[in-house]
């Protein structure tokens, strides 16, 4: 069973004076269980709309969306879901412990487990020292980490994270990446939106790029990376001992290596030289925009 199934999903907002804004047009997307899926797109492309539809905050105009085979309009669809909203906002009067207990209770976990898991997660996210302080005194990064803790607490089979890296320092980003990798290692599914391409390379299995409410690319990251190899950087020392660096195009690698070895040079390193993810993303968006307008 797929973790996420989206079929023909459309969403139109009614703007001022009857203007209609098409936020999402006929979106079709399946995310398999155990996959880490990156959802990319420029600002206002429909990433957040998709996530809000999946988490039951918006009503669908047409099409259908399911989490683990349950329609998203049914609150039970969110039983196996951990959700991190974009720029999360938490009740200022409550402290971290109370937030986690509340979420645990809503998920129907027993008190013992809530206590044990909360402790563990708060330590993991380095919030244990501030856990008894009301949240209104938290910095942006701390709020983001607590919201992530809230999403992780029920140990969900599916994590939907809306811009999980925003507001975090490099240490925090590394932590989030670790958490995503760890979830994947335990067979969980992760669906996250971002516009930071380097994050994608690090953790994603697949990506989807959405532009103006339309899905324009759906790619396997490993393949993309393989296809994206444009050449190799070869570092070697010639027989006189002088260091050299050469960029060799993909098709001529073998030929070039043979001649180098024949000339008596010693190879130090061969690194694939990729067209990077950012370039791919920008190109895709550009093409799509051109095609749509």
């Amino acid at each position: 069973m797929n973790a996420i199934e989206i079929k023909g999903l459309s969403k139109t907002y009614r703007g001022k004076r009857g203007a209609r804004v098409e936020a999402l047009v006929d979106l079709n997307l399946d995310v398999k269980a155990g996959e880490v899926f990156g959802f990319l797109g420029p600002n206002g492309a429909g990433k957040s709309t998709t996530i809000k539809l999946l988490t039951g905050q918006l009503r669908l105009n047409s099409g259908c969306a399911m989490l683990f085979g349950v329609q998203v309009s049914d609150p039970d669809a969110r039983l196996r879901l951990g959700y991190l909203p974009e720029n999360p906002s938490l009740h200022g009067h409550m402290n971290a412990w109370e937030h986690l207990r509340f979420v645990g209770q809503i998920h129907g976990l027993d008190a013992q487990r809530i206590k044990r898991d909360s402790q563990q997660i708060l330590e993991l996210l380095e919030l244990d020292k501030d856990a008894k302080r009301p949240v209104k005194g938290y910095s942006k990064g701390m709020t983001q980490r607590l919201a992530l803790a809230v999403a992780l607490l029920p140990d969900p089979d599916l994590l939907i994270l809306d811009e999980p890296m925003s507001g975090l320092d490099p240490l925090g980003r590394a932590l989030v990446k670790d958490i995503i990798r760890d979830a994947k290692g335990r067979g969980k599914t992760v669906f996250f939106s971002t516009h930071i391409t380097s994050d994608i390379e690090a953790v994603c299995d697949r990506i989807g790029i959405v532009v103006r409410g339309r899905l324009c690319a759906l790619e396997n990251v490993a393949e993309l990376l393989r296809e994206g190899v444009e050449g190799y950087l070869v570092r070697y020392a010639d027989k006189l001992g002088c260091q050299h660096e050469d960029l060799i195009v993909r098709d001529r690698l073998r030929e070039r290596l043979d001649s180098l070895l024949a000339s008596g040079a010693t190879l130090d390193a061969i690194e694939p030289h990729r067209r990077d993810m950012e370039a791919y993303f920008l190109q895709t968006v550009k093409d799509a925009e051109a095609c749509l307008s």
């Binding site: 809000k52 988490t55 039951g56 905050q57 609150p75 039970d76 669809a77 969110r78 039983l79 879901l81 959700y83 909203p85 974009e86 720029n87 999360p88 906002s89 938490l90 009740h91 979420v103 809503i106 998920h107 919201a147 809230v150 939907i160």
Partner: peptide, 16 residues
């Protein structure tokens, strides 16, 4: 205050 985003992402019906 956007509390609803987090709240309604939980398995909690709007009615409840």
């Amino acid at each position: 205050r956007r509390y609803t985003a987090g709240l309604l992402g939980l398995p909690l019906s709007r009615r409840s």
